[in-house]
Design a protein around this nucleic acid. Structure first.
Lengths: 260, 260
DNA sequence: CTTGGTATG
DNA sequence: CATAACAAG
């Protein structure tokens, strides 16, 4: 079974740039997309989902902003939207979508960015704490649980091109990195990192400014985190850098798990 | 002496699309541009005016909106901005710029559009009346006086592709057309119309919607109006339809006058 | 630098 | 349908 997370940075732009080619090429069972920036009714009329798939789209209330969607070619059951917490009980920003696909539970997540203003950084941090609480009960499930998406945090110095220069950047602040470490201490597995080992510097996002993409000045902020059952079923994880060139400023992160 | 009026629909876009080619090709002494939608400091750093010319730019206060500019390769003296009336004494929308070029006085005008909402139609009509008062004293000048620009009104049935279907459209309302007739009764000469005669249907603007440009479904709303002295010096007037294809949704209107 | 929304024409 | 500002990332 193949599961992918991808921040598409506007699904309509992604469609124009040929996202379909990647749907075909990567041939996944489930796609968790973030930042779709689109309501269902805004999808181009002449576009259709990959053959045999269905999509659950959970948009933000604000048009053209945020929003996640999960596309599946295996039976999909919606388990919920949002975190039911006090911060944003209706998940008006379209950031969390939970689905079940047989014995696999997926939490498609788009964690807020804090880089625009201090107020949003505060929001991000409150959100982070609430999300950690929200996913905690899933840790001990016997189901394969994968919480994945754009978490807007690079964890280690090997998850960012220039750790020194970004020590004060939102997304690489010491307490954000600690929060991430705590998450792993609780029992979540950073599947890509565990698959490739601690030393690889491989990124999933590159700024559009300057020559960041060409010079591979990126960050790894797109994750697949798994519980014990997921870790045991993991076969391989890779990042398709090509998708981060042609379609989005993020690359798809691809997980293969052994069948049950 | 060659004098041109042209609504460029954003001078920065016009520069990208090759307005310089038209500066060279048409080789005018004075250009009256409307809808420059630009402050001086926003002009591209790598762009320069045609050799030997100077420009007076009178922008709107609101960024990216309206604004007129006059470019001259002969000595130019600024006579004033705005109409000094009560409607908009500072001409905050950048709609009127008066210049002198030896014995020629030019009133570069961008008359408000009324098509967005009724409130703007009211504004347009008040503006029209005030402008007529403003230019009236220039009628009896011994100088050549040319009031020109985008007047946002098609005068006769030969100034619009579909007079029947537009009888209720702002820009072709009966009272707007009457206002135009009154202007001519006062003594202003519609130089293009007097040059080509009453029967020609030649337009200066085409909507960007549909196939209006391809099907020549246009309006003549860009004018050069002259006083008696101007009428006597008139040699020819033509509309360069090519400029309305390659650079703007409006075409340049070109006046040649005999030298004094 | 790019997305998408909006105001204006 | 196009220009340009803007908010957001």
């Amino acid at each position: 079974m193949r599961i992918v997370t991808w921040n598409v940075n506007g699904i309509r732009a992604a469609i124009r740039k040929g996202i379909d080619k990647f749907f075909d090429k990567i041939d996944a069972d489930v796609w968790m997309l973030q930042e779709v920036r689109c309501l269902s009714e805004q999808l181009p009329k002449d576009w259709s989902l990959p053959e045999g798939t269905e999509m659950i789209l959970h948009p933000a209330e604000k048009k053209g902003y945020s929003g996640v969607a999960t596309i599946s070619r295996i039976e999909m059951q919606e388990l919920g939207r949002g975190m039911k917490g006090k911060l944003d009980p209706q998940d008006s920003e379209g950031r969390v979508l939970v689905t079940r696909h047989n014995d696999v539970v997926l939490v498609n997540t788009y964690l807020p960015s804090g880089s625009s203003k201090e107020e949003r950084q505060q929001y991000k941090e409150t959100w982070m704490d609430q999300w950690r609480e929200f996913i905690r009960p899933l840790l001990d499930s016997d189901d394969v649980v994968i919480v994945a998406g754009d978490l807007n945090i690079a964890h280690t110095e090997n998850d960012i091109w220039n750790p020194k220069g970004n020590a004060k950047s939102s997304g690489f602040l010491p307490h954000e990195r600690e929060w991430f470490s705590d998450l792993l201490s609780e029992g979540w597995h950073d599947l890509f990192r565990e698959h490739v080992g601690p030393d690889e510097k491989i990124f999933s996002w590159w700024s559009n400014r300057g020559q960041a993409r060409a010079k591979d000045r990126g960050w790894r902020i797109d994750y697949l985190l798994g519980n014990k059952a997921a870790r045991e079923r993991m076969k391989s994880v890779e990042i398709d850098r090509q998708g981060g060139l042609e379609v989005s400023d993020h690359a798809p992160v691809i997980l293969d798990i052994h069948s049950s």
